[in-house]
Amino acid sequence: MKSYILPFAALFVSTVSFAFPQCAKPSQTVFHCTTTKGKIIEVCDSGKTIDYAFGKPDVAPEIIVKAPRQSASTYQWQGIGRTISYAVDVPNGKTTYSVYWAFEKPMEENDEPEPEGGVAVLANGKTLATVTCDPKKEIVQRIEGIDLRPTPED
């Protein structure tokens, strides 16, 4: 009986060590949200790399990308217009994970802006999929001001 307990315990520990959140110290969370289908989108600044992870909570992520910092980029709102938006683009070969956060400035004084976020999966300049964050759950956003090169405009 004891021989079954030890392998099971080892499996449990290894699974938990790769579960969300991925932004273990000294990495810093740049973005984190729960999608409308209950999965996690997360971007971490690990210094030399910008790390993207996607998947179900409490298990190993379905996708993990550790892009060299110099290959990642960012879009920063320029201060013009009602829509305030930021993005971090994490490349993986011909695929780019563009993690974004945005909200509309309120038109009326009492309006509460509802931020939105998610990830657009791009390949060869075309959007393959967009996964959105659940607006009823917290979105952690620290993209504003991140020290990355600007995303090239098409």
Rank of each mutant, 00 (worst) to 15 (best):
H32C: 00
H32T: 11
C33N: 11
C33Q: 12
T34S: 15
T35F: 01
T35S: 05
T36R: 05
K37E: 15
G38H: 12
K39S: 09
I40H: 05
I40L: 08
I41S: 09
E42G: 04
E42T: 13
V43K: 06
C44D: 05
D45N: 04
K48G: 10
Y52R: 11
F54S: 03
K56D: 06
K56G: 09
K56V: 13
K56I: 10
A60S: 11
P61Y: 11
E62F: 10
E62A: 15
E62W: 08
I64T: 15
V65Y: 05
V65S: 12
K66E: 15
R69Y: 13
R69S: 14
R69W: 13
Q70A: 11
Q70C: 01
S71E: 06
S71Y: 06
A72R: 06
Y75K: 07
Q76R: 12
Q76D: 14
Q76G: 13
Q78Y: 12
I80S: 13
T83Y: 00
Y86Q: 12
D89L: 04
D89F: 10
V90D: 03
P91Q: 11
P91R: 07
N92V: 03
S98R: 00
V99H: 02
V99T: 04
Y100T: 08
Y100Q: 11
Y100R: 09
W101M: 02
F103W: 14
E104W: 10
M107C: 01
M107D: 14
M107G: 04
E108C: 00
E108V: 04
E108K: 06
N110F: 13
P113W: 01
E114G: 14
P115A: 08
P115N: 08
E116H: 11
G117H: 02
V119N: 02
V119R: 02
V121F: 12
N124G: 05
G125M: 07
L128N: 12
L128T: 01
L128C: 04
L128Q: 07
A129T: 03
T130V: 02
T130N: 09
V131F: 13
T132P: 00
D134L: 11
D134R: 13
D134G: 07
P135G: 02
P135A: 05
K136M: 05
K136F: 01
E138R: 15
V140Q: 13
R142W: 01
R142L: 02
R142E: 02
I143F: 08
I143G: 08
